[in-house]
Computed example of a mutant assay.
Amino acid sequence: MKYWFFLAFATISWGLNFHLAKMMLEDSTAMEAGLWRYIFGVGVLLFFLWGDWPKWSAVRSQLRPLFLVGFIGLFGFNYFFFVGLSKTSAINAALIAGLNPATTLILSRFILKTPISKAQIAGIIMALFGVIFLILKGEIFSILNLQLNEGDAWILLANFVFALHSVWVKQYGGVLSNRHFTFLTNFFCLLGFVFLLPFLEFGAITEYPTQYWIAAIGMGGVGTALAYYFWNKGIAQLGAPQAGIFMNMVPLSAAVFALFFGESIRFYHIVSGLAIITGVVIMQLKGRKRNKPVAQA
């Protein structure tokens, strides 16, 4: 049960992240918000890691997996995530993230050779309907004139990259300890933002309001350091497809937190959220017996 708690904690934190990120984007660019998120996130992980450094020989042998999970998976996801959030609402982004279990299941089939049942395919179709309903804002008959909101498109891409990240965590996360693996992959993500520094313009740090730093610390310490630590630990035990069921808590928690951040919830948000969650539950109920727990990383 503790691994279920770990996954639930991570996804609830990510639901809050959508709103904290929107707060940061009111005062800075997407890349600057991402940079500060990972400065604080890696800083917290570094504090917990102090005195227990990974051996260089082990790190060197895992450079390719660390690059895939940390740079492509985490940095790629965060780049698309922050750009998307600057162009769409937190609720829309969170509901699209609810498609992640279906995406993870499909990628697990091709990368990890995880079998997919007919019921799981039905769940994927149901979840996809939910996302389309959201994008169409409930006006199904306007599908012939469908034009993707640019922000929604970026979030869909972020969703795909995060699904890759989850599969790669399952595939490569058993060599290094979870603490080392989580720190190093987040450090690789931070390097991605650092590499962009020469090409970006940043505002003066002293000009940012207090709420900006509260959001940055919250995203970094809780929504990044602790969330990814618990998420990686849960995936190592339960597997990527099985852990994916908890991603339906992202839109739910984001919707609850929206009430505290002044965002309105419309009817099509509720319908699309229910469709996505129903699809996810169908997939996981039928797929749970297929996925046996693995040894803890």
Rank of each mutant, 00 (worst) to 15 (best):
Ile277Tyr: 07
Val83Met: 05
Gly262Thr: 05
Met219Arg: 06
Leu16Trp: 13
Gly279Gln: 11
Ala94Gly: 11
Phe267Lys: 11
Phe257Lys: 00
Ser28Pro: 02
Phe82Thr: 03
Thr11Ser: 05
Ala236His: 13
Arg37Tyr: 13
Thr88Lys: 09
Met219His: 06
Ile91Val: 15
Leu95Ala: 01
Met24Ile: 05
Ala8Asp: 00
Ile124Arg: 00
Lys113Asn: 14
Ile217Asn: 00
Leu274Ile: 14
Ser28Glu: 09
Asn291Gln: 13
Arg109Ser: 12
Ala93Lys: 04
Ile132Tyr: 06
Val222Met: 08
Val59Lys: 03
Leu144Pro: 01
Gly130Phe: 09
Val280Ala: 15
Leu134Thr: 07
Tyr172Asn: 06
Asp152Ser: 04
Pro293Leu: 00
Ser61Gln: 14
Ile217His: 02
Leu20Cys: 10
Val256Arg: 02
Ile155Lys: 08
Lys118Met: 08
Phe67Ile: 03
Thr182Gly: 12
Leu107Gln: 08
Phe110Lys: 01
Val59Asp: 02
Ile132His: 05
Phe129Asp: 02
Leu20Gln: 05
Ala215Gly: 08
Leu184Gln: 05
Val175Asp: 09
Leu35Thr: 01
Phe82Gly: 02
Ile270Asn: 07
Thr88Cys: 08
Val131Thr: 13
Pro198Glu: 11
Leu176Arg: 00
Asn232Val: 04
Lys289Ser: 12
Leu85His: 03
Ser142Gly: 12
Tyr229Ser: 08
Gly138Met: 02
Ser13Trp: 11
Gly98Arg: 06
Leu16Gln: 10
Arg109His: 14
Lys286Met: 07
Pro101Met: 04
Asn159Thr: 15
Leu259Ser: 07
Ile140Leu: 15
Tyr268Arg: 00
Ala153Val: 01
Pro54Leu: 10
Gly223Thr: 00
Leu226Gly: 10
Ile124Tyr: 01
Ala243Met: 11
Trp231Gln: 12
Ala255Ile: 14
Ala94Asn: 00
Arg109Asn: 12
Met23Asn: 15
Thr185Arg: 07
Leu136Pro: 10
Ile116Ala: 08
Ala240Lys: 05
Arg179Pro: 02
Tyr268Pro: 00
Gly262Glu: 14
Asn291Ser: 05
Ile245Phe: 13
Met31Gly: 10
Leu136Gln: 11
Ala295Asn: 13
Gly123Arg: 02
Leu46Arg: 10
Ser13His: 04
Asn92Leu: 08
Pro251Trp: 04
Ala240Ser: 13
Gly234Leu: 11
Gly151Phe: 11
Tyr38Phe: 15
Trp50Asp: 01
Thr210Pro: 00
Thr224Gly: 05
Thr103Pro: 01
Val281Met: 10
Ala102Val: 12
Ile96Trp: 04
Ala122Arg: 01
Ala240Cys: 06
Ile135Gly: 04
Pro209Gln: 11
Ile135Ser: 14
Lys113Phe: 06
Asn291Tyr: 11
Ile143Ala: 05
Lys2Thr: 11
Leu196Trp: 08
Tyr79Gly: 06
Leu148Gly: 05
Ala119Cys: 03
Ile12Thr: 14
Met1Asp: 07
Ala58Tyr: 10
Met219Gln: 12
Val83Lys: 07
Asn232Met: 07
Thr11Gln: 13
Ser117Ile: 03
Gly173Trp: 12
Ala275Ser: 14
Leu196Met: 15
Thr11Pro: 01
Ile72Glu: 07
